[in-house]
Write a protein that binds this DNA or RNA. Structure first.
Lengths: 178, 178
DNA sequence: TCCCAATATTTGCGGCGTCAACTAAAGTCA
DNA sequence: TGACTTTAGTTGACGCCGCAAATATTGGGA
């Protein structure tokens, strides 16, 4: 183990600004959605992902990948949303282990009702503060960061033997493009 | 209410990349700290803020402001850390309502032990993915976003009369500079 | 000094998230 | 086909968080 490379002044500044802004934004969006539409930010995003999927349905695992969440997190979220009538579970035809989460008409209506206020808040707190060039920079930078985190790290520490070979990364990329 | 200004393609790209990267990073940092040092990310940051404060102590409210958290959140966090022996509560001399949270030597030691691994992870997942120019852009952009969120919005909706006049904004700025 | 609005902190309640363990169903291979 | 591994989804235990209400002080007039 070599000596730690500490953050320099500019990195510190970036890191703290990022963390501060993120906490403030997430809380602001959560509150806005909660008070104006009675949905949590997490649930809202889950509804968005379903609304964009073909047939407005997604397998639980794909929903987890699409929302950058965990399987258990999605299980609980879908249970919540199912009880609210905004999502329903549909068994897989070809794989008896699988379950689809499908957006109901009520769920779509809820999403349509919540979207304008949410987008307005995102614009107000984030995009109205940035120039178009800054938006480009942001997309580029975080695209790189997200990709690196989804890819089994190259010269990394000491994880499994090597690659995983299955369709995991491919599935995630497909979801992120959607 | 005017029509909603939806996000254009580039804004969508930026927004999703940001959210995805953020979720993945936060989870990665939480796991790293938890497994390597048995501290949560939140608690780690709280310890950092205390370590940087004069006398290694901060009033609860200032700790809340510094961590972009809520008062109740800080109360619970400090209770946790107090039980672990890393922080202790000290009553205010001049204001009997007030309580200081003070980092103990054990807390400082824990922080020193956890820091290298954490900084290494932050570097790996974030800064190693970015050019110095991107780091500058990021600091600038999120600095603007965080400032806007901390400032009572100018032409905003219908909040309190106008300014608040007290030392709130000043206190936050001081903390963010530290 | 007495009354009342503001501030500091805590706590009851409930939402939401993760990990690890568990069940069920595929897939693999001899 | 039978044994073993992998994958999908769920759940139990537990931790963290925030709001709103409660408690204790403070500060500012009347």
């Amino acid at each position: 183990m070599t000596d730690t490379r500490w953050l320099d002044a500019e990195e510190q500044r970036a890191w703290r600004a990022y963390l501060d802004a993120t906490r403030l934004m997430i809380r602001a969006f959560d509150q806005q959605l909660q008070t104006d539409a009675e949905v949590s930010f997490t649930d809202y995003e889950l509804l968005v992902k379903l609304s964009e999927a073909p047939g407005r349905r997604l397998r639980m695992r794909d929903l987890a990948d699409a929302t950058m969440s965990t399987r258990s997190g999605v299980t609980r979220a879908v249970t919540r949303l199912e009880q609210l009538g905004w999502v329903r579970r549909v068994e897989c035809e070809d794989d008896r282990r699988g379950t689809h989460a499908e957006l109901t008409p009520a769920g779509l209506a809820k999403l349509a009702a919540a979207a304008p206020g949410h987008v307005t808040a995102v614009r107000e707190h984030l995009f109205d503060q940035l120039t178009p060039a800054q938006v480009d920079h942001l997309a580029e930078a975080f695209g790189q960061v997200a990709d690196a985190l989804q890819r089994p790290r190259a010269g990394g520490a000491q994880p499994e033997p090597d690659s995983r070979g299955d369709g995991h990364a491919r599935r995630i990329s497909a979801a992120r493009a959607g």
